[in-house]
Every structure is written in C-alpha cells, then in structure tokens.
Simulated scan of single mutants.
Amino acid sequence: MRTLKDIKFSVLELAPVRDDKTVEFSLKHALELAQHIEKLGYERLWLAEHHNMDGIASSATAVLLGYLLANTQTLKLGSGGIMLPNHAPLVVAEQFGTLATLYPNRVELGLGRAPGTDQVTMRALRRGRQETEEQFPQDVLEILSYVGDAKPNQSITATPGQGTHVPVWLLGSSLFSAQLAAKLGLPYSFASHFAPRMLGQAIQLYRENFEPSIYLDQPYVSMGVPTAIAETDEEAEYLATSAYQRVLGLMRGESLKLKAPVANIQVHWSAAEKMSVDNFFAMAQIGSPETVKMGLEQLLIPYDVDEFIFTCDIYDTQKRIRNFELLMQLKNAD
C-alpha cells in the first residue's frame, strides 16, 4: 500500500471571507497562501467557483487565477472547478487558453456539472438557459476540441486556446462524472470535502471502467479532505468550529462568512444539525499532527487515491497557513 510520501498533496481554495475582514483581504490572502504552498512543495492549488455566497470570494475564477499565476513561479493553478452550466464552453476554452498561453504548463481546468449556486443565481448567470445532464458531456467534449489541435475545416477555433492542450479534469460528488471521466480517459477528483457519501462507489466505478486516452494512460484520482491541524487535538477541534459554523450557515441559509472559533460548539446546533455537519465532514482530518497522520493513512487503506486535495477554514490566516505547513511536514516525515 502507498504511504503519504507516495501521494501528491494539493490545496482547494475557496478564498474564504472572514466576518471582520474585506473581500480584498481574502483575495490577497489567497495569493499569500499560493506563494507559501509553492515553497512548501504542494502539487497544485485550485479555486472553486461559487456564486451569490458572501463568504466565498473565488467567483470570478479565471480572473483570480490570473492574479495568482502572475505572482507565483512554478505552482500548478486551476479550477476546482469551473461549473459548466454557468458558461459557454467556447468562453471557458478562451479564458483558460489565454492563461495557458501566458503561463505554459501551469494551468489546469477542472470541470463540474452543478451550477455551484441557487437556481435564481443560475438564471442570472446564464440568462435563462437551462443545462441538463445530457448537455454536460457535450460541453466537455466541446472544450476538449477547443484546447486540442485544430481539425481540418474546423468552423470555430478558440483563440487563444486551440493547441494549448490545457489539462482537463472532471469533478464530481456522485457517480455521473466518475463514469464520464472513465469513458473519456480523464483524471477525476471527488468532492469528498463536502459530499463524501458516494466516494468509494465513484472511485471503484471510475477505475473499473477507465479507458486509456491521449490524456491519460491509467486512472488518476484525487479526493477532497477538510483539515484543521494544530499542536494539540484540543486546539485543532477549537479551530475547526469556524468550519462547523460555516456549514451551519449553509444549512440555515445564513451568511457563509467565516466566524471566529467558539469554545463550546454544542450550544450552537441541534442534534439533527450536528448529525448533518458530521456527515459533511466525514472525511475531515482534525487534530494534532500525529492524529491527522494516522487519519490520512487510514484514508489510504480503502481508497488508495493518487492525491489528497485539502481544504481549510481556519479563521486566523497565519494558523491557516500553519495548517498547510504541518500537513506537508507529515508527508515529508512519512
């Protein structure tokens, strides 16, 4: 079985907005984090596209990627993901083709099938055009054609984009994208950082049905893992209460701005809400370095993934950066 040293470590950044700070602070912190994890040796940093959420500042994903790319040197940067129901495939190909032209071999395009927002906002994004499950595979194929080599007599070319061969990933929290990624021979990332229930089934389905392609010769899987690491289990549990409050806000339709940790989270939720939060964070690794190391090793036993992509909703930005330092120390010490 593989060890942590064999697994790639990456970061999924949602540019969380603190309840006492500006959006500008969040965007500049995203750059600080990207620069720091680049020095630490992380594989990639992805930005997630969400809309109409006051606590997430990465909505203009391609624009923010340009800012991060311009101020880093080697780190791979991409989307985790661009939500295709919100965009015309040609526009996505042109945006990421532009980034890939300016920053060769550093740009990645993760694609998701959900809108990443509510129905009203989705209509505002696409002006009433409704996407279906059937449309998603067609959109993926269209993007692949725009970033691949041009075909003879091709009627539409993405400029920039054509021939950039931007690596495309499929993301998912169910079985649909796992099947499509296997069919197309694309790398696959499962959103177990918020929807872990079907992780095992999706990975198995993807691996069993994978068809080698010009993009990938064998299956490649990453899984999302929420984290809160500190010197002690007690401190980590305390820091994790910010993430718990954020999910409570999501469930209640309240603000998603990151709140300061609380000493007693139990008074903030009902038994049913606690169960829902526990389910949301089923794959979370919270504790001291020793505790988290053991937890990550346990995750490798059933899932044997190629890569962990970590999230972190620690309120204090320096402790948040420290979280990723401690994670990489676990990998290097393994």
Rank of each mutant, 00 (worst) to 15 (best):
S276I: 03
A271K: 15
M328T: 04
Q318V: 13
K259E: 05
V247N: 01
T291Y: 11
M328G: 12
V277F: 00
M251P: 06
T311H: 11
Q318T: 12
F280A: 02
F310L: 13
V262E: 08
D304Q: 14
E254T: 04
V292K: 07
Y303T: 02
M251I: 07
I265Q: 03
L330M: 10
S255H: 07
T317F: 14
G249Q: 02
Q266R: 09
Q285H: 09
K293Q: 10
G287Y: 08
L330V: 01
I321Y: 07
I314G: 04
D316Y: 09
N264T: 12
G249W: 01
M251Q: 15
K319M: 09
D306P: 07
S255T: 12
V247I: 12
E290S: 11
Q266A: 15
G287R: 08
N264G: 12
E290L: 13
D313W: 09
A260G: 06
D278C: 06
A284F: 00
R252V: 04
F281P: 00
V292H: 09
G295C: 03
S255G: 03
Q245D: 07
M283Q: 13
G249D: 00
S276Q: 14
E290D: 13
I265R: 06
G287N: 03
L248I: 00
P289D: 08
I286L: 03
N264D: 15
L300I: 10
R320L: 06
F308I: 14
R246K: 14
Y315I: 05
T291M: 07
K257A: 09
K293P: 04
P289L: 12
F308T: 13
A284S: 01
V247E: 02
E307L: 06
T291W: 10
F324Q: 01
M294N: 14
G249T: 00
F310D: 02
